[in-house]
Amino acid sequence: MNAAAINCLPSPGLALRRRWASRGMTMLMGACAVVVMAPLFLVIYFLLREGASALDWNFFTQLPKPTGEVGGGMANAIVGTLELLGMAALIGVPIGVMGGVYLSEYGSDRVNNWIRFAADVLNGVPSIVWGMVVYALLVIPFKTFSAYAGGVALGLMMVPLVMRTTEEVLILVPQSYREAGLALGIARWKIITVIVVKTALKGIVTGVLVALARVAGETAPLLFTALGNSFWNRNLGQPIAALPLQIFSYSISPYDDWHRQAWAGALVLMLLILGLNIFVRVLSRGKSAAS
C-alpha cells in the first residue's frame, strides 16, 4: 500500500458522518417513492369506501332513475363508454399504427422530425380543446351532439399516442430481420406486415391498450360531443352516456344518492383502467421477440 492510498482513507469521525449522510439520503429517497405511491392507494381507498356500498347488481343493469327517485344504475353509461372506446379504437388504431409504420419504415429523417414534433405537440393539447375542435367540426354542421362526435374526439386523441409507441417498438425490431427478408426477394410491404409488425405485435397491442386506458377516463372531450344521455342510445347519431360524464353530472348534483352513485361510477371506471393496465403488464411480461 502506498502513501497516497493511506491519505485517502477518511478519519473515523468522517467515515461515521458519511455513513449517516448516506442513510439519511437513502431514507429521503425512499420517502419520495412512498409519496409517489400514496395517491394511488388513497384513490383506491376512497373509491372503495365511498363507492363500494352503491355498487350492486342494479348499478350494472339499470338506467338512471328520474330526479328524486332513489336507486337505478349506470348501465347505459358503462355500455356507452365501451361503445365510445370502440369507435375511438376504430379511428385511433389504424391511423396511429400506420403512421407509426411510416415513421419507422419509410419516412425520411427530415419529414419524420416534423411528424414526431407534431405528434408530441398533439399529445400535449389539452383534452378540452379536442372536444371544442370536434364540436366545431361535427356537432355544429350536423346540428346534434352524437356518439360519433365523442368517438371521433377520443380517437383523435389516441392517434399520436398509438403512433409514437408503434414507432418505438418497430424500431426495436432488429434491422437484420428486414435484411433477411429483403435478401429472400420478398416485397418490402410484405416484410413489414408479415415479419416486422408481427414481431413487434405485442408492443403495438400494449401501446393501443395504454392509449385506450388513457382516453377511457377523459371527460372534457365528451362534454361538447357525446354530451351524455339518461337513456339507452339507440342511434350513434344521437347523444350517448359515458361513465366520466355521468360521474361529472352526478357529483355536481345536490342529491346524496347520486353522490354515492358517482363514487360507484368512479370505482367502475378506475377498475376498467386498472384492468387494462394489468392486462398490459401481463402482455409485456412475455415480450421476448422485440426486445
Binding site: P174, Y177, E179, A183, L184, G185, I195
Partner: peptide
C-alpha cells in the same frame, strides 16, 4: 435480383415469430 442471388448473414437471423 435477390431471388436469384441468396444471402446468408454474419449473425443468424431466423424470424422469431
Amino acid at each position: 435480383v435477390r431471388r436469384r442471388v441468396g444471402m446468408v448473414f454474419q449473425k443468424s437471423n431466423p424470424f422469431p415469430t
